[in-house]
Nucleic acid binder design. Structure first.
Length: 467
RNA sequence: GGGGCGUUCGUCUAGUGGUCAGGACAUUCGUCUUUCUAACGGAGAACACGGGUUCGAAUCCCGUACGCCCUACCA
């Protein structure tokens, strides 16, 4: 809450893939920091030993890299700071903001069960809250925060506004487990403080936690970060985005062929707006991104719009970068790597391929004529174009092509004149040409294909088809 | 049970007391074309509901409904 340089962080727990909703949270943190010359840190919340794996950590890091969300410094492992977390709990114990609780989990569960049955509050009130040290038994205990039970607390949130919470709704949360390990709620606050985090941007499922964590800041007299709790992303049916909506992991989106720039644009625009701007660059996003553009209601994920935005990005990404990303996409799907000839061909053809492709699988489909070798295999629709009549016209066209200079206008002239000689429209001739050149009926423009393929290959394919 | 948050076209959203409620995606119709998941043009489509406040409300207040989140010795 000062004019300290901005420090944000993304703090995933490595209990699964990089969820696309988490990725958006990361993106917002990244945008906010990068737009203000701040620092963007990454912290792996691996305090749940049973569910955290290093494989998952790797997957999350890979997802971040794919999305181009570069973080500053090394990723921090929360579990490595356990002793520091406990140290803070001890300090709170010493200054009277926490206490030892000897209630067993069975006792607490039993209490909650009866509370649920009686439909009364399930907030557990420990009987040990005010018991003095010399009356403590020699048994395992947890350290609990001593939460206020009177009054209310108002927290300012950059997205949610002022939110007020009655203090009697706050429980004496556990800080340190009976096995001596710190709990997430404590670890987050200590780490955020130690890392100098100035802005906590996270999902609004943490809003309630903010009030409990606030108590730790108070107890330690630490400067509090600015809060921004952003709404979650829902699936098309309005339920929290999950596996049954299809893909949730960032890697899956890469494998489906969405370019990272389109992904960033779409995810940024989902739940945030800057007037009517829909399509923007990273630079614009960084300049424009701010909390007041964030909406308060959850947004639904729409694959169609994502695809549309991606198409616009593919159209403007420069060829070298696009080829690089295409190669990475192919790798992610486990496809055969491109040969040198193939990637050279694609690079030459990219100018016409990228205009009609929204995602990489479409681009590969359009590039089919480049990827194949003679003799060209015909699919059913293409074969239908190669009648005896059309083949004879192709045979007639070939010598004209042999003498033509290989420019677009010449090629157009040659093909048009042959079509005219047979009293047919260009479209009639384009079908067979398409079939001969690509073996498909849906391809880029026939002239573009000729240009990309070059004179020799074009003529060879036409001869194959007309023989 | 308690608490918090939310609700503008199908979807993402603009909008902060006076707008024919705008844009985008999607849908649909059409044009063009050399195919298309391309391009271009047109159309339909929304302020959850009920009360207030006000000359005037999508915008402010109250209530209702619905949805979501939290309510762990998970994170």
């Amino acid at each position: 809450m000062s004019d300290r340089p901005v420090v944000t962080r993304f703090a995933p727990s490595p209990t699964g893939a990089l969820h696309i909703g988490s990725a958006r949270t990361a993106l917002f943190n990244w945008l906010y920091a990068r737009g203000r010359g701040g620092t963007f840190l990454l912290r792996i919340e691996d305090t749940d030993k049973a569910r955290s794996t290093s494989e998952n950590t790797q997957i999350i890091l890979d997802g971040m890299r794919w999305l181009g969300l570069d973080w500053d410094g090394e990723p921090i492992s929360q579990s490595a700071n356990a002793s520091r977390h406990v140290e803070v709990a001890q300090e709170m114990l010493a200054n009277g903001h926490a206490y030892k609780c000897f209630s067993t989990q069975d006792e607490i569960e039993a209490f909650r069960e009866t509370a649920r049955a009686a439909k009364t509050s399930t907030l557990f009130r420990s009987p040990w809250r005010d018991v003095s040290e010399d009356e403590h038994p020699d048994k395992p205990y947890v350290i609990r925060l001593k939460a206020p039970r009177e009054g209310q607390t108002t927290l300012h949130d950059e997205v949610q506004g002022d939110v007020t919470w009655a203090n009697d709704q706050l429980d004496d949360m556990v800080l340190v487990r009976s096995d001596g390990s710190p709990v997430y709620m404590l670890a987050v606050v200590v780490d955020d403080h130690d890392m100098g985090v100035t802005h906590v941007i996270r999902g609004d499922d943490h809003l309630a936690n903010a009030f409990r964590q606030n108590l730790i800041y108070d107890a330690m007299r630490w400067e509090k970060p600015t809060l921004a709790h952003i709404p979650l992303i829902f699936g098309p049916d309005g339920k929290k985005l999950s596996k049954r909506h299809g893909a949730t992991g960032a890697a899956e989106y890469q494998a489906m062929g969405y370019p990272a720039a389109g992904m960033r644009n779409y995810l940024t625009r989902l739940g945030w707006s800057h007037g009517d701007d829909e399509f923007f660059t990273d630079e614009q996003a960084r300049d424009w991104f701010d909390f007041d553009g964030i909406g308060k209601s959850p947004a639904r994920f729409d694959f169609k719009k994502l695809e549309n935005i991606c198409g616009q990005h593919i159209a403007v990404i420069d060829d070298a970068a696009l080829l690089k990303e295409l190669v990475e996409y192919l790798q992610a799907t486990g496809a055969e790597p491109l040969t040198t000839d193939q990637s050279d061909g694609i690079l030459r053809g990219l100018y016409c391929l990228k205009e009609r492709s929204k995602i990489f699988p479409q681009l590969i489909e359009k590039a089919h004529f480049i990827l194949i070798n003679r003799p060209v295999e015909l699919d059913e629709k293409a074969a239908a174009h190669l009648t005896n009549v059309s083949r004879s016209i192709l045979a007639e066209l070939t010598p004209h092509l042999q003498n033509a200079s290989w420019t677009r206008s010449t090629l157009e002239g040659v093909v048009a004149s042959v079509a005219e000689a047979h009293d047919m429209k260009l479209g009639k001739l384009a079908g067979p040409l398409r079939a001969a050149l690509a073996g498909r009926s849906v391809t880029p423009s026939v002239f573009d294909m000729m240009l990309v393929l070059g004179q020799d290959e074009t003529i060879a394919r036409l001869k194959d088809a007309s023989d």
